[in-house]
Amino acid sequence: MSRTQRIMLVCATGAAGGACLVASVYLGLDRADKIASIVSAVAGLGALAVAIYQLAQSSGEQPGGSPPRQVQRGGDNSTNIQSGGNIKFGDSNNLGGDR
């Protein structure tokens, strides 16, 4: 997150908190509580709708999509890292082991 985004997030959160304080003082705590319950119920239903939509979109796909394409090079300048051997990059540039 960039600095600008962080500042915008803090300002938006502060503005929302200030709006809640003003609403609770202006409307009274009881009425503000009832309005907050309705707003949170609508937000929850919206989140549920988005989740169901995402499930419907991905139902025919494999989990995680298609696997990434990997290239295996062989030859004198490659080492099998899984076997615990020394790592060689490019033209015999060694990393670890004997140099």
Score class of each variant (00 low, 15 high):
Val25Ser: 07
Asp33Phe: 05
Ile52Thr: 12
Met8Ser: 00
Pro67Arg: 07
Ala51Asn: 04
Cys11Val: 02
Gly60Met: 11
Val25Leu: 06
Ala36Phe: 01
Gln70His: 04
Ala16Ser: 07
Gly14Val: 10
Val42Thr: 13
Ile87Pro: 00
Ser24Leu: 02
Ala19Val: 14
Leu27Cys: 07
Glu61Ala: 10
Leu21Thr: 13
Gly17Val: 10
Gln70Thr: 09
Leu29Glu: 15
Ala43Asn: 12
Gly17Ile: 08
Gln70Gly: 12
Gly14Arg: 11
Lys34His: 02
Ala23Ser: 11
Leu27Phe: 02
Val10Phe: 13
Asn77Pro: 08
Leu55Phe: 01
Lys88Tyr: 03
Ala23Pro: 05
Met8Pro: 00
Gly75Gln: 02
Gly17Lys: 03
Gly28His: 11
Ala19Tyr: 09
Lys34Gly: 01
Cys20Asn: 12
Asn77Phe: 05
Leu55Met: 06
Gln70Ala: 08
Ala47Gly: 08
Met8Gly: 01
Ala47Met: 14
Gly65Arg: 10
Gly74Phe: 07
Ser24Pro: 03
Ala49Ser: 10
Ile7Thr: 02
Ser59Gly: 01
Leu9Ala: 08
Asp33Gly: 07
Asp76Ser: 02
Val25Ala: 03
Pro68Ser: 10
Leu55Ser: 03
Gly74Gln: 13
Val71Lys: 12
Gln54Tyr: 05
Val22Glu: 08
Pro63Ala: 04
Lys88Ser: 11
Ile38Arg: 09
Ala19Arg: 13
Ile38Gln: 06
Ile87Gln: 12
Ser37Val: 01
Ser58Trp: 01
Ala43Met: 14
Lys34Trp: 01
Lys88His: 06
Leu29Pro: 07
Ser78Pro: 11
Arg73Asn: 14
Thr13Met: 13
Ala12Gln: 13
Arg73Tyr: 11
Leu45Val: 12
Leu29Ile: 15
Ala23Lys: 13
Ala23Cys: 12
Thr79Ser: 12
Met8Ala: 06
Ile52Ala: 14
Ser59Thr: 08
Ser37Cys: 02
Cys11Ile: 01
Ser59Gln: 08
Asn86Leu: 03
Gln54His: 07
Arg73Pro: 09
Ser40His: 08
Gln82Pro: 00
Lys88Asn: 11
Cys20Asp: 12
Gln82Ser: 02
Met8Asp: 01
Asn77Leu: 08
Phe89Asp: 09
Asn80Asp: 11
Val25Phe: 07
Leu29Ala: 15
Val39Thr: 06
Ala41Pro: 03
Asn86Ala: 04
Cys20Ile: 15
Ala36Ile: 00
Tyr26Arg: 10
Tyr53Glu: 13
Ala43Trp: 10
Val50Pro: 06
Asp30Tyr: 12
Gly46Lys: 02
Leu45Trp: 03
